[in-house]
Design a binder for these strands. Structure first.
Lengths: 222, 222
DNA sequence: CGACTCCTTGACAGCGTTCAACAGTAGTGG
DNA sequence: CCACTACTGTTGAACGCTGTCAAGGAGTCG
């Protein structure tokens, strides 16, 4: 397991006077590992990150995807609860936890209220995800995933997803084959168009069609 | 949906000078509903509580069981994220949120640090549960459930579970039949004894056997 | 005692996994 | 520029775990 110092590329190293420093992580590299001391908090400038847990036999559960503008790696205890990897080449701003949550707060640092809000958002997301993993079928999961990404990317004209089918599968508790089949079902049922190119991108050209998906009577969206 | 005032039984009503008041909820009654204003925080004196989300068609996902000594109903936002019901006749102490988290804190109130710890524990539990729901099979889920309850009840000589098979199933994302079959498999594989009586209780007489279960090489416990 | 709930067990169906083959794309190096 | 490889995604076929449906036993309560 590579430590952070082995993988980051400083583009503007954090001096003692600036709270945040800029770093880059190439695609598919580890940002931090589950159980490591949670010394840093990350803010994504561009790119995307997956956080996940692994079982000893390799089974993986992705807890969340983090996109540009998101903050991740915020811990209250001393260690990261999940591992984090870059999905794409990703630029992040990093702050030392002890400074970000210093008492009294320094300029640009997090207030306790902001920390509470972050943690609450994490809980909300996890609890909605529990319902999805425990009680929704494959097509519902994939549809909910698309809806979530669409909302988080603020319903762009073209929805481009950075993660692979396997990432989506490990997020939704499915196999990548089942995810692929669920996409096919959604396509053939006219829920959205899928003009390709097919490689690592899903392009949704018609926003109204995605809106219709969200209004399925059979689809119990969160 | 009944309001709290319709279901509680005051045994020692909260006066303006005491932070906590005592109340009782009969078995299978609602304590609060998802989306209601989160005006109270609950501390369980005796009994047990389930918190859960429902889909419109009735599918239910239990997020957590709360036992004697546990605190639940703590929210940062304004509304409860899950519904809560008493599993047994349950005695709780209730505090008004605004007083419990008042600034400056009054005597007996929560510090921000304690609140953060509570929220962090909630996140940890949820994220472990995501892995269970997304990536573990039925027998693994039931075994993990037993291990969790055993730990939380501090490995008592006899482990008595207050919840029904259906509650367990809705906690583990299974059906009650599958839970029942998983118990049978664990029993027949000699992991633990199951002498009954069979009604709404699972009695584990041999603690060392439960310990052996936790040490299964094939069982990737959390 | 009768009605109800809870639990177990069997038979069967079905959804999702597993295994496999193949196509399309990107990346690499000659 | 092209050959080669690796990776991603799609699709088919068969399997199997879990869900569904059903029946029956046991305990509880009025």
């Amino acid at each position: 397991m590579l430590g952070r110092s082995d993988t980051y590329t400083p583009t503007n190293s954090a001096s003692k006077s600036t709270l945040w420093g800029d770093f880059k992580y190439p695609r598919d590299t580890e940002i931090f590992g589950e159980g490591e001391p949670a010394n840093f908090v990350y803010h994504i400038n561009s790119g995307a990150v997956r956080t996940f847990k692994l079982l000893p036999d390799g089974r993986r559960q992705i807890g969340a995807f983090h996109l540009a503008g998101d903050i991740f790696g915020v811990e209250n205890g001393g260690a990261y609860r999940l591992s984090a990897e870059a999905i794409l080449d990703t630029r992040v701003r990093i702050a030392k936890r002890e400074r970000l949550f210093a008492e009294p707060p320094e300029l640009g640092a997090f207030s306790t209220k902001e920390l509470l809000t972050l943690l609450t958002k994490t809980i909300e997301h996890a609890e909605n995800h529990l319902l999805l993993l425990g009680r929704q079928n494959a097509v519902e999961r994939v549809a909910a995933f698309l809806t979530e990404m669409d909302q988080r990317l603020q319903s762009p004209e073209t929805l481009i997803l950075p993660m692979t089918r396997r990432d989506i599968a490990d997020y939704l508790g499915l196999t990548h084959e089942t995810v692929s089949r669920a996409f096919a079902i959604l396509i053939h049922s006219g829920v959205f168009s899928f003009p390709g190119p097919s490689h690592r991108e899903i392009v949704l050209h018609d926003r109204t069609k995605l809106t219709r998906m969200a209004l399925w009577p059979e689809h119990p969206l969160r």
